[in-house]
């Protein structure tokens, strides 16, 4: 069965907001290679509302490759309780999930295809993780303490054991750590 996977840029102090403000020279060749291999395993993207709203006004006309082609050509689902419609430039490949997210994801996972990637969308990632709906979480831990900004994890999350299944270090010192739910292993 296809998996729901997430990869996030995160600082050592757990900040995920505005990585462009603290990524500096860490988007290096190793990171680019990592991004390339990640998108090669996905054919569907899941977005939270905030990331969708930021990205829908940027990516449809962007030329930052290879991600621009990937995100613009891939089928996207936006999870939001408040939006009424979603669009992606003049493309017809974005859909709104308004109802029960767990059901929709279960349905998507049963369809044939490559992995479903949650891009950005830390609030959604945290929620999926808490509800056991995320199969794989890759944290790309940047060597910086940002000091302020939205964090991935919040106080009051449930205690959860994970399993470290992969670790890589980039040439500029980003630790790329991949975890799965412990019960699923891999």
């Amino acid at each position: 069965m296809r998996k729901v996977v997430s990869g996030l840029f995160i600082s050592l102090d757990g900040v995920v907001e505005s990585p462009d403000q603290w990524q500096f020279d860490n988007f290096d060749e190793d990171m680019l290679a990592e991004m390339g291999s990640v998108i090669a395993t996905q054919d569907t993207v899941l977005l939270g509302r905030v990331t969708y709203q930021d990205w829908a006004s940027y990516w449809p006309t962007a030329t930052d490759e290879p991600y621009a082609s990937f995100i613009n050509n891939t089928l996207k689902y936006v999870a939001s309780m408040t939006l009424d419609k979603v669009e992606w430039g003049n493309r017809d490949n974005v859909k709104l999930i308004k109802g029960n997210l767990a059901e929709e994801i279960a349905h998507l996972k049963q369809q044939p295809g490559k992995d479903i990637g949650v891009s950005g969308s830390p609030t959604l990632v945290r929620s999926l993780l808490q509800h056991g709906l995320l199969d794989k979480l890759t944290l790309m831990i940047h060597p910086v303490v940002v000091g302020r900004g939205k964090r991935l994890f919040k106080d009051g999350d449930e205690l959860k054991m994970l399993k470290l299944v992969d670790a890589k270090i980039t040439r500029t010192g980003v630790a790329i750590l991949t975890y799965t739910n412990q019960k699923q292993g891999e």
Binding site: F153, D155, D157, M161, A167, G173, A175
Partner: peptide, 30 residues
């Protein structure tokens, strides 16, 4: 030493409202 667990609550090392500090990763092991 980063353990593969989401603790969910408890005091955190890094506080909010601090200056940005860049670091170098000088050693790593899993």
């Amino acid at each position: 030493e980063i353990y593969p667990v989401i603790a969910g609550s408890g005091a955190r090392l890094f506080k909010d409202g601090r200056a940005l500090k860049r670091l170098q990763l000088v050693d790593s092991k899993t």
